[in-house]
Design a binder for these strands. Structure first.
Lengths: 227, 227
DNA sequence: TTATTAAGATGATAATTGTCATGTTTCATT
DNA sequence: AATGAAACATGACAATTATCATCTTAATAA
């Protein structure tokens, strides 16, 4: 009996294709550690040489621009893998990965993953599909970024955060992003983001509970987002 | 001796990992045909059930938005594969593929590709790396779309088209896009695109030779693009 | 607790970009 | 060569969004 067997990442990610033997190998080669909110798992340009399993917490993949703004490309939650692309491409990381909420992660060295690729076809296929999924999402977001207004993108992002991460007991969004981070996802200035949140609040679409956000009128938000 | 053996796609794409036997199988299962400029290879939502090899010509992957604008996600040139993502994900096409210049393509059925996946690990890995490459590009373009102005994106795109597709004997860009298509790549209104081309022309960065574009000051364009 | 800093909020204004209208050029077709 | 359609071009104007300044509130450290 070992821990990886019951791990959420094993259940949700490409790793689900691994058999018992392989899971044992995995358990022996992995290293587990914690990453505090705000800390980086890896930075752009770094050679990671492996894959990270997110057991708990939330992370963001982002890139710093010349003007100092941090564009967030993707949020990662527990059960997902991180750093697959760089590993497969044999390249240093293209993005920086930071914890948005305290994280617990396992690191699997590249050599081990390559072994799995060679011994387990379904695992390869899963990994491929996962990258394909990321690609599709990235392309669709790229389109949304150009074809929708900031207002629409904000509505869309709020809905996405809601369905992806759920809500707390007080009905507010579980992922707690700063306004700056939220602006970094939708690709706008922090002030514009704040202003629109304020507008949404006045319109009764959302409610601002301190720094937290509660979705109040999902239907109208949806209508706003995709029209 | 068969045609696939010498094909440019075989030399440049993931297919380079295939051995002689596999190439023969490939040659027997593929179908070749032509696609005229403006015609579609496949449309969004269509189930393609295979992969397309681009032997000659240029294609665009795009998505039509609600307001009737066609956002171009990627250009494809000879030597590249098309439709890998949908095939791997088992999903209908997310984008529409159309010919920008008369194309000659081969269609490889999915069953054949799956066989190669199972028999040839390097082929799987190549395919994975190719999707990863697309993902990286897509993410970087997504960032550029938000963090750069339309002017910067136009400069960047012109340089990209130049390095990717080269120039004709008269020094103008080889890919001939309409202003509307160019606008669709950089994600702006056609009029804005035309206006900026006109500005670039006046500034001596480019020269407009009828509908064709000649890059005249690559250095300044570069400076403009990434600052 | 107080001081200090970071995050959030809002107004005023400027810059960028989109939209609509209209005219010109180019190209294909009869 | 005449016609019509599509592509290109440009002006005028409106809408969106960014930037700068300032203020309030919340969080953190001394």
């Amino acid at each position: 009996m070992n821990k990886c067997d019951q791990c959420i990442v094993r259940q949700l990610s490409s790793l689900k294709a691994l058999n018992k033997e392989e899971i044992i190998k995995l358990a022996n080669s992995k290293t587990t550690y914690k990453v505090k909110k705000g800390e980086a798992l890896f930075e752009e340009g770094e050679v990671t040489n492996g894959v990270f399993c997110v057991k708990d917490g939330v992370g963001k993949l982002s890139k710093l621009s010349a003007n100092g703004k941090d564009q967030i490309v993707k949020l990662v939650k527990s059960g997902e893998l991180l750093g697959q692309r760089s590993m497969i491409s044999n390249e240093p990381a293209n993005l920086t990965a930071k914890a948005i909420a305290d994280m617990e992660v396992c690191f699997i060295p590249k050599t081990e993953i390559i072994n799995f690729f060679n011994s387990n076809n379904q695992f390869s296929l899963n990994m491929m599909q996962s990258v394909c999924e990321d690609l599709k999402e990235s392309e669709n977001e790229k389109i949304a970024l150009v074809q929708k207004t900031v207002k629409q993108r904000l509505a869309e992002t709020l809905l996405h955060l809601h369905s992806e991460f759920g809500e707390d007991a007080d009905k507010t969004l579980k992922v707690q992003l700063t306004r700056e981070e939220l602006a970094g996802i939708i690709g706008t200035a922090t002030e514009s983001c704040i202003r629109l949140l304020s507008d949404f609040n006045k319109l009764g679409l959302i409610e601002l509970v301190g720094k937290k956000i509660m979705l109040k009128d999902v239907r109208s938000l949806k209508k706003l987002a995709d029209n």
